[in-house]
Design a protein around this nucleic acid. Structure first.
Length: 430
RNA sequence: UCCAGCGUAGCUCAGAGGUAGAGCAAUCGGCUGUUAACCGAUUGGUCGCAGGUUCGAAUCCUGCCGCUGGAGCCA
């Protein structure tokens, strides 16, 4: 019967057929070892000359990397296999012979692999990263569903920017100007006033000329927005959410974490609550560590963020940033109007900011004043101002960058491997 | 945009004024427990592009193009 590699454990000592690609092979005169993959996992097929026809044994020795085939064999336990099982092959049927597959089992450079991203995804490490990414997405939906959130999809084509701080991709919308969304947040605030607790999951676009291991031009964000929630309650939701995702990956992606050689003890520590430090204390911490290139009122650079993160072994919230370096919609702290009720969550091990969030301004007069200060007047934002006019309530929200989170949890060096087809400063192919 | 480094075989790299090299891949052969298998043989080149210096340039110089790492910007 036909099955998948992920399900062979249900067919111990039975004969099964698997549709697969040849990942690699080793052969000697009378026995061949086929490393097979079918998308669900990897398994070794052992072809003994005596167990198959002469034609099939010849095929097992000659078959090329990434050729597709149907493999029939008996599932047996084997302690030498990472999966715990291997296939004693009794039949081989070639579907298509792959000629000169470019990605060999040896080393390759970054540019070459990126040019062959459509094929690179087949390799073991990339396969593992995509499985972890999927588990992060799956557990995100599980967490927010459990907390009574409704998934809401904000538009990708917008008439104006949410924050005005970043470079947008411009396009034509018939006779009007339009921009690709850099954040769904303003729309999510409208949705929260309709449905209470909402979250979005979708792509965002930033035309920044950033060229670092932490930046993508197109990246995916998870943006929850919660009515009747203040800043402190939002922080609790954030730490519980992130801890839930990490623990879900630990539980459901053990083979993948092993493939990625991820140090699990680093992830096992990730439980709520997370440490918090105010912006003002973080500046002092940096000065105590010898940084003399930053003063109160400056935003953090990458080395600053990393230094703060390394002072903790869990993700750390940096709270209460100066109002003027943050977005116009953030609510000032009633106890100190120079700072905002906001927080960035910095991942450990130098992976940088993974969440930015705040309580939002709910007072109509103050929001109207911010509009003037930030020169945001005009029809594009009228609807957003109206949210403060008709039953305004305290509310908070945050945005989590999926790819940075995947990079942190998988422990990989560069964000370009966390998304199937990365859009980078100089890359739109494949 | 700025700083630094790199462009040589399909891939990863060595060669630093004097005959273009290795490992892997590919092709042929050998091997019954391999784990990036191993062993033997064969094939494979516009040395990124353009100009210059020199008897002679992959090698030195200039410009351009491309890539990588970092900074800034940003999440």
């Amino acid at each position: 019967m036909k099955t998948t590699i992920a399900n062979v454990h249900k067919h111990l000592n039975e004969t099964v057929t698997i549709g697969a690609w040849l990942h690699n092979k080793r052969s000697s005169g009378k026995i061949s070892f086929l490393q097979l993959r079918d998308g669900s996992g990897f398994i070794q097929g052992v072809v003994a000359k005596a167990a198959v026809s002469e034609e099939e044994f010849e095929l097992s020795k000659e078959i090329s990397q990434e050729s597709s085939l149907y493999v029939t064999g008996t599932v047996v336990e084997d302690s030498r296999s990472p999966l715990g099982y291997e296939l004693q092959v009794t039949g081989l049927e070639l579907i298509q012979e792959a000629v000169d597959y470019p990605i060999t089992p040896k080393e390759h450079g970054t540019e070459f692999l990126m040019d062959h991203r459509h094929l690179w995804l087949r390799s073991k490490k990339q396969h593992a990263i995509m499985k972890v990414r999927n588990e992060i997405i799956r557990s995100t939906y599980e967490f927010f569903n459990n907390e009574g959130f409704v998934k809401i999809d904000p538009p990708i084509l917008t008439g104006a920017s949410a924050e005005g701080t970043t470079e947008l991709f411009h396009t034509k919308y018939f006779d009007e100007d339009a921009y690709l969304s850099q954040s769904g947040q303003l729309y999510m605030e409208a949705a929260a006033m309709a449905l209470g607790r909402v979250f979005s999951f979708g792509p965002t676009f930033r035309a920044e000329k950033s060229k670092t291991r932490r930046h993508l031009i197109e990246f995916w964000m998870i943006e929850p927005e919660m009515a009747f929630m203040d800043h402190e309650e939002s922080l609790q939701m954030q730490e519980e959410y992130v801890a839930f995702v990490v623990q879900s990956v630990l539980k459901n992606c053990q083979v993948e974490l092993d493939t990625l050689e991820r140090d699990r003890s680093q992830l096992e520590k990730i439980t709520a609550p997370f440490p918090r430090i105010t912006y003002t204390d973080a500046i002092q911490l940096l000065k105590d560590q010898g940084f003399d290139d930053i003063d109160w009122g400056d935003d953090f650079g990458a080395p600053h963020e990393t230094a703060i993160a390394e002072s903790f072994d869990k993700p750390v919230f940096i709270t209460h940033f100066p109002l003027h370096i943050k977005a116009f919609y953030m609510k000032p702290d009633p106890d100190n109007p120079d700072v905002a009720l906001c927080a960035d969550l910095i991942a450990p091990e130098g992976y940088g900011e993974i969440i930015g969030g705040s309580e939002r301004i709910d007072d109509y007069e103050l929001m109207a004043q911010r509009y003037k200060e930030h020169d945001l007047e005009g029809p594009a934002y009228q609807w957003y101002l109206q949210l403060r006019q008709y039953g305004s309530v305290p509310h908070s929200g945050f945005g989590l960058g999926l790819e940075r989170t995947v990079a942190w949890i998988t422990g990989i060096e560069h964000i370009r491997e966390t998304i199937p087809f990365p859009r980078l400063l100089n890359r739109l192919y494949p």
